[in-house]
Design a protein around this nucleic acid. Sequence first.
RNA 1: GGCUUUGUAGCUCAACUGGAUAGAGCACUUGACUACGAAUCAAGAGGUUGCAGGUUCGAGUCCUGCCAAGGUCACCA
Length: 582
Amino acid sequence: MTITAKLQELTVDAVKELYEIEISPQDVLINQTRREFEGEYSIVVFPFVKAARRKPEDVGTAIGKVIKTNSSIVADFNVVKGFLNISLTSEVWTSFLKKSSQDEDYGFAFPSGRKVMVEYSSPNTNKPLHLGHIRNNLLGHSVSEILKACGHQVVKTQIINDRGIHICKSMLAWQRYGDGETPESSGLKGDHLIGKYYVKFNTVLKEQKAAIGPDAKDDDTEIMQATREMLIQWEQGDDAVLKLWKKMNGWVYDGFNETYARLGVEFDKNYFESKTYLEGKTMVQAGLDKGIFYKEDDGSVWCDLEDVGLDKKIVQRSDGTSVYMTQDLGTARLRYEEFGSDGMVYVVGNEQDYHFKVLFEILKKLEEPYAEQLHHLSYGMVNLPEGKMKSREGTVVDADDLMDEVIQEARIAAQERSEEAVDDENIQNVGLSALKFFILKVSPKKTIVFDPKASVDLQGHTGPYIQNAYVRIQSILRKSGMLDMSLTGEYTEFQDAEKHILVALHEYPRIIQAAGAAYDPAIVANFCYDLAKLYHKFYHDCRILTAESDAAKSFRLNLSQLTAHALKNGCSLLGIEMPERM
RNA sequence: GGCUUUGUAGCUCAACUGGAUAGAGCACUUGACUACGAAUCAAGAGGUUGCAGGUUCGAGUCCUGCCAAGGUCACCA
């Protein structure tokens, strides 16, 4: 049982004893005592004041006395206004420390038996990944790891949008202008090579439109007609087209996989739109049969969602082909049938908020068994200081370039310090931690203003700042030799800096739970930063290896070790690794 | 226009979900490396939490109305 839970229980008993009022532990609000007062935890007594019919100060004092008498964990208390500040005995803290400090997974929960599926990334296959995908990938990966730390079994997945007109555009351009170019022959990463031809397509399209006249539409052009022709051939299973499609998609996947690997994200299972949309069509037909959907005169199929405050939504075109919604219906069911998840999380930008609202409502109407357990993790766009990224203006920040940049910055910083030769792996580690932390520290819902200069900062509220705290601890632990914990319990006179770390560490498991419940990595990110900050302060204020007593040394080494474990496993939830040196 | 999200220091972000005098970092000024790693620490300055009402012991947080910015309202994905 946690200390705060114990305090809640004690308060419930005290209130009952004093005023004969029944309250539940959840009604007892406990927060950390502000720095300027004595104590570690504060009980807010305002809620009981009215029923007790006493002044807040009197209620606080009365509860404080009872709690102190009834338990051995409270050393002292004081009351300021309606806040009852509790000082716990040193024994409470040293036993917590001894119990937890050997656990490398301290903070992680026991298995819950729940299985959750997380979908993220799902990029278009005609362009390389950019900054927006980086946010998506980091969020998806991090939320997955957080849910694992909450004890759930997690399956990471993505839907690959591998069919449609957009693929044909790159294919056609490559066929006409590629001259047999391959990733090997050009030295270009596969996704960048495809991107090059997608751009080429659009250039030619623009030229042809200009040649026709000011009112020309895409479909008026020869190249667009040729592309549509190619799509038809694809749907008819034309050998040559399918072969080209497979080859070029292969290049893209190779390119993506390289970027994923470097970013440290991965997937347990990929779904391909080309294979799921048929299941969607089956569901549409079933919905029609059951009268959940209806057919317009032109043959298109719709779902009326006005009873749940939404509009009518098309689920199948008049020509019988599927729309975006159709394949999402099919994908959801296939996933459920294959994995039997208790929940599905879709990591997709907030521009699709409405789409997911509709999707979830339709699945409810279809009475899919998993329909109530779906969650859209909606996140904000990533903008540059100058505004939105625009491919037309060439302001899109490429994912691979960006990683190169932050790593280069870390390399320069390492060379300036040049204390010991730091290997390349560590440099990458540090650079990527700057980038990842910069993005994950912001709550998903919010729009990010991405300043490239700030993202490569290695000081202050950054990933490397946290890594530095960890590296300092490792350095100390290396020098300390064998960890002798036996005297930890004899240390009783805590410094403020020590107490603050203890409280933070004790809160850590709750932080992970909160982050999981809210699907919010920023909660973990900011906790790690706060903990690192507390440790830096402690490191500055207290001697560790040359502590004033053996008990103090033992305690501080223990404290350092547990801090290191929390920093390491906490940052691992963000995809950030801790180096031993930097 | 309807729906929706967001407005907190010059800038980038927090605020334990209704609790104490709203906190960090960057930038700026200043101090600390002959103590375990200065990617650090300390100090200073910086605020009418978009505006106006309301709810109560108590509001950045909740309710209402405005203002501003983004998103979305396709037989695109």
